[in-house]
Nucleic acid binder design. Structure first.
Lengths: 203, 203, 203, 203
DNA sequence: TATGAATGAGCATTCATTCAT
DNA sequence: TATGAATGAATGCTCATTCAT
């Protein structure tokens, strides 16, 4: 009965895909189960065969979204061992990644954040553990900076604070891209960001 | 001959205050009028004596929030004419301002952003004009950078892109403060941010 | 303290006047106390100094409305003793009376009827006793027809049925006047009505 | 694979039926969705599966009501080509039709009229176009009278005015039937009406 | 397994009435 | 006496979830 299991996974993925699109367009709270069902081309009841609740769909989407993002980052970082190149790759991947999706789609990040910040649901918070996510991301970036310092290419700075600042800058630029996708040449903003930052910490 | 005399402005402010707290804790969509009423210590109907709708409360809160923030920024910038000092002041004021509020309170910013990004309501969008807000803020910061370049203290960079990057960094750091207020010595992160940035653009 | 009493009656009348106008424009159910208060130029609470409830205002207006109408009818009938002339006067007074008011104003009659037909409130039904009103009106008209028959100017018909038919015709024409005040030369319709009817029963 | 199969038209009709009963008993404004739901033996939400709003239920009921009435009239008139017989049929059908329904049921006509007279809602007014309804009905009756005049059986009267008067008489008698269904032998009142009228216009 | 009909808890909003001044 | 600020019961409507088929 292995094929059956594949089918289920396949259908689950289809529903998640539909959900992500609907979430992206309407925001999570305003997204209705019926919308997701219609977009997925299934009946309303069918969704409940694959997910316990709307919240579970959200959680699954979030996890997937995150996993994909992390993979991209990891891929980019594994290309080189040079700290400067790694930081450049980090910015490039983020900006390129954000630009890849259409503007509507990006709005979903806001909801992930918002939900993660305020959810009262314990299960939810375990899934959307923003604290942990950022802690790990900070450690990753701080490690790169630390490495740069050890190799003498970066000044001896407080790696954690600088990591936090750089990550913040990344998120903040993405926020502006969400708000006004056409306005600026975002690739250049990304370049400005990394140039300023690298100039700032290079020896 | 004389009805109960009430300071309507005062009461309006009290309700807005209650609303901000409730919005901050639950998010705007999940905040119920009855919650706001209870928090304000008034009846459900009373709110409608002061605001036409839930949306109007939100808009009023947003405007107030923004106005206060802008005042702080303007105050800080007017203290000096030196570009470097102004950029430092900008970061300091933002970080200090964010730390001043309690953590719950800051969460409301997320909803302001989220609402601004996705609201379909024309009236709402006129009020929460994020595009315009950021455009103006970018112009302000770009002006300072430009001034620095002209005075020879900053390198000749693309002022707009750098402004965008700096603002993004500010927002991003604030986001992390929201998510994990205790974690880091945020003042130091602010310092790291401005040090890296200034190092990066100073001649 | 007699003047005080006069003042109270005066104010009560003013409020009723305002109420009738508001009822006429919006219908009774959709008329708000605040509208009546504003139209009367008094405070919302003041109304309750003169009327126990919205229902009581309605009842008072209805009674007044009816009393005035009855007076007009009685006035007209007392001008002559001739049955044919009296029936003509009846139609004329009704049509002229209806035309006197503006169209909006007439709509109130519908609500009086509707309320009278369906009110579940015992007190209300005692006041808006449509059954009794029509019974009396039928008796009045039947009396005139009877008188005509006895004097040999009308055929020997079932006076009650003919009275009912005539009254119905009157109401029905007024209904059309309400619906479409401009459409027809309503005076001529009144003439047609009475001509047909009198031709029909005259010997 | 197959959901519960329901005859949606059937269910829609059942809800309309319940709605008509509730409207008839309480009047439209005082009828609550929950009352209709309970009378129909369904949940509150179920109604909204079949009607978009309370207003839509009302409109559907009104249209149905009217269509049925018109059919009756048309049926009766098609039985004969004789003007006098047609006018007699008109009155008979109306009175018989009105008597067929129970008294509560008829009260709904008042609300249809009242709503038609005062509704501010454009969509509603398109549905309850009383002006047009009466205009058409007047044209129909005037045509019969005209035909009678041409054939020399009726006097040369202003057909439109006489039609309006006859229709008014019909409505007015029905109103009295609503108010006091037991009181009079309404068939005889109908006879009186048509006798008087026909006597009045016959040559 | 798949479906959509059915449901009712939940919510924003309205408004007659009360009552402190 | 006059007022309007305050109130909460009541209502139309939404939507996540259930369940019979």
């Amino acid at each position: 009965m292995a094929p059956k299991i594949v089918d289920r996974e396949q259908k689950r993925a289809e529903i998640m895909n539909a959900a992500i699109q609907v979430f992206a367009q309407n925001g999570i709270v305003k997204s209705k189960m019926i919308d997701i069902a219609r977009k997925a081309g299934v009946g309303k009841g069918t969704i409940y065969e694959y997910f316990r609740s709307k919240e579970e769909i959200f959680a699954a989407c979030y996890s997937q979204f995150n996993r994909q993002w992390e993979e991209k980052i990891q891929d980019a970082l594994s290309q080189t061992d040079d700290p400067e190149a790694q930081l450049r790759a980090l910015i490039t991947v983020s900006v390129e990644g954000a630009m890849q999706y259409n503007e509507d789609f990006l709005g979903i990040m806001m909801d992930f954040w918002a939900e993660g910040i305020r959810s009262k649901n314990e299960d939810m918070l375990r899934i959307i553990d923003l604290k942990n996510l950022y802690t790990e991301f900070r450690a990753l970036v701080a490690g790169i900076i630390q490495k740069g310092t050890e190799r003498g290419v970066f000044r001896a700075v407080d790696a954690k604070s600088y990591a936090s600042a750089l990550i913040g800058a990344l998120d903040g630029v993405m926020l502006q891209m969400i708000i006004d996708p056409q306005l600026l040449k975002w690739r250049e903003v990304g370049q400005a960001l990394i140039d300023a930052f690298l100039n700032g910490i290079k020896t």
